[in-house]
Amino acid sequence: MSNPTETDAAQERTAAPPTPPRPAEWWRSARRQWAAAAVLAAAACYAPFQLVPFHVFQLTMVLVYAVALLGLNLLVGHAGQISLGHGAFFAVGAYTAAILFDRWALPYPLTLPVAAGAAFLLGLAFGVPAMRLRGLYLALVTLAIAIFLVPLLKRFEELTGGSMGLTLAKPAPPAWSGLAEDQWLYFLTLVVAVAAFLLCVGLLRSRVGRALHAIRDNEGAAEVMGVRLSVHKTLAFAWSAMFAGTAGCLYTWVIGFVSPDSFTVNLSITLLAGLVVGGLGSLSGPVLGGLFVMFVPGIAQDINDAAPGVIFGLLIIAVMYVAPTGLAGLAGRLLRKIPRKE
């Protein structure tokens, strides 16, 4: 969580008078970040031993969605593109894992790289239109991917199990671990999520990240600075799809069941909404967005069983009204209100 509110901070800086950075301040903030990370890590390892299995499962699913949102954030928040079809890449990861498991009895750890790779390649293929299209046009094409997918999955019944889907055994906890199944799945997911998070941070800090930000902020200027637009726009799609595919694979591990109706257009739209509500372009946004994707549809259902969609929509509007830069931005603002000891 090195910088939870990049965009928010940028706005803040716009208003604030220039303050040259002080090394002491930087050191203090870096120390605070490490402390926060350590507390978070401890809590993440402690939680599954305190919660009932169903809550452990819910927490696991939050992490699964967070991984998908990490990818979507890369594309939307950092590369400035849009995708209304990320549920499709998620589904490709999920189905790749399920089919490998089901047909070839591949050991489950091996399904992860294959699922990620398949989604990466598909992302690369769909990144080509992204090179030429932008804004609403790109949104429409990506939406078409999501719409296209469900009938396609139903069509290839021998492989995908058609509308019935595929039911699989979940990865069993090894005896040495002494963990229950839900705890084992949680830690598997946690390890993958942390690795995905670090990979994403590394990517953003590298030359690639700089190129993506430049394209997002000023395409023409990026181009004359030597950034290859076509390469980076396509790769942003592919990277992003890879994270979504990884999340899809985790989904298969955790749920043990895939069916076309789990991956409708609704999923894609919920993912995008979750990211925007969580905080676009921030590091904590995907985690907050994961919470949103996991819990808010259920809450909406609880409030009004007849029209969950209406409540869901109203909740999004309410959050965006209170926190226009997403929950990450709101959290950053609240944290800054807490007086600090000197």
Binding site: G220, A221, A222, E223
Partner: peptide, 28 residues
Amino acid sequence: HPPDTLARQGVAHVPEGRGTFMPLTVEE
């Protein structure tokens, strides 16, 4: 040639309107 090739050939263009990457820092 495309602009990125020309940039590698040593052409630097300060475009009309400056082309600042607004949200990025000065150093970035």
